[in-house]
Design a protein around this nucleic acid. Sequence first.
DNA 1: ACTGTAGCCCTACGGTGTAGATATACAAGC
DNA 2: GCTTGTATATCTACACCGTAGGGCTACAGT
Lengths: 261, 261
Amino acid sequence: MPHPPTEDARTPRDDNSESVDDPGDRDTTGPRPRTPITRGVLLHAALEIVDRHGVEHLSMRRLGQALDRDPMSLYRYAPNKAAVLDGLAEVVLDQLSIDTTDTDWVNQARSVAHQFRRLALVHPNVVPLLVTRPLATPLGLRPLGTLRPLESFLELLIRAGFDDADALHVYRSFFGFLYGHVLNELQELVDNPEETDDLLRLGLHRLPIREFPRLRALAPVLASYDGHAELESGLDILLTGLQTQLHPVHPIHDDTSPGGI
Amino acid sequence: MPHPPTEDARTPRDDNSESVDDPGDRDTTGPRPRTPITRGVLLHAALEIVDRHGVEHLSMRRLGQALDRDPMSLYRYAPNKAAVLDGLAEVVLDQLSIDTTDTDWVNQARSVAHQFRRLALVHPNVVPLLVTRPLATPLGLRPLGTLRPLESFLELLIRAGFDDADALHVYRSFFGFLYGHVLNELQELVDNPEETDDLLRLGLHRLPIREFPRLRALAPVLASYDGHAELESGLDILLTGLQTQLHPVHPIHDDTSPGGI
DNA sequence: ACTGTAGCCCTACGGTGTAGATATACAAGC
DNA sequence: GCTTGTATATCTACACCGTAGGGCTACAGT
């Protein structure tokens, strides 16, 4: 039987120079899992990899290595890699907290917006998963954690007096806008950070002058992007617009909604 | 207009596309390039693969097979696979047509919005690339075709009287909203199409009743989603809001002078 | 005729997700 | 005690991926 290295009592990790939070404590017996591992632990480790190195560097093998486990053993906690990606979106989205009892839904929406923006800035590499995974999975099959903000937000709106259809309307406009904003803000990549000239810093000098005069002229404005302010002004427009267009009646709801829109 | 999703008018040379290794067929004329191949041809073939089977099924090998070429030879027309993906976004985005001379910028924006929505519905599998690729590439390094709509839209706004900063403001709000809407609309996947009951069709029956009462109650409303109407009402809010918040000074209204640099 | 050069193709390397066989550990029954 | 069933952990293997590097062919210039 070919058994490569370290025959006896397991722990074949002497070649592992990575950070291990484990001093030599394996005296008692042989096989000993260091950390019990759960779906949460797995996802947390995956999140760390993605945060640090990007989605494309996340693989089951690397994840197993980070957890000091055989890659195959991970399939006990996630049916496949797609589920890990969905789980990442869940881990991040689940951090949104919505107070459904707040009667001022506009105020609460503002809070959610800023929380969401903050999460996106902390985990920029997860944002593609956030906006993209739902396109691959029908609503009913997504991790519950990703649906919970939806449910809470709907609850908030309905309690504030919207009927079902309008609540959905508002939800969609609002989160659509949020997704859009975040995607916009994260695009503001800098090509050459230590360059002082805005044009060079953004790499805009590469664009043909005659074809892209406007864009090139906007270099200084692009360079002074303020995501928070941009979000605020967008929220102003959207929320007041939603308020005037779909005025909620007072907090009494009638569940019998007719067909059609 | 590009081909609709399911319908497919076969081009004449398509009979060669399927993988059939016919041994006695090649000796007639020796080495023979079937089609000259260019970047455009390559991207078009890639788009077809993605439209039909999704992004994850696009590989250089499969692309080479579709073009009846050695996979390695493709690297002559694209430096790497990422460039192919960027190129796909370009091919689709380049189909947006913006009339920068239209003095009614709101009207023109509406047109762009509906064009964009249409493109997204025709090429749903490309949408993740559309919204995601820009996160990986600084502005100045993107394919020019993806920047051309940006430039045109800015041109439109500036001609309509916005100053640089406000034009960028409007552009961002507008396209952010558009991205958000499209992502929302494409999420409306159906789990079980032939089921008549809305709850089962959307797979919502899988959700715990006590945890997701609102969401489950919304099944009928979810099922009767009308993307066009939703987009329209969103545009109403956004565009009127933008108009009142950032009033352009006054339209320059010079349909004769095209340069203006 | 010879040589440079440019394009095309093949092979190979190191990676991927994961099916299936295999090894190991532990509970229950006799 | 022993056997046995079952759950878990690990290993091996397969089919695929992107693409570096080298070799091959064909033609241009001399």
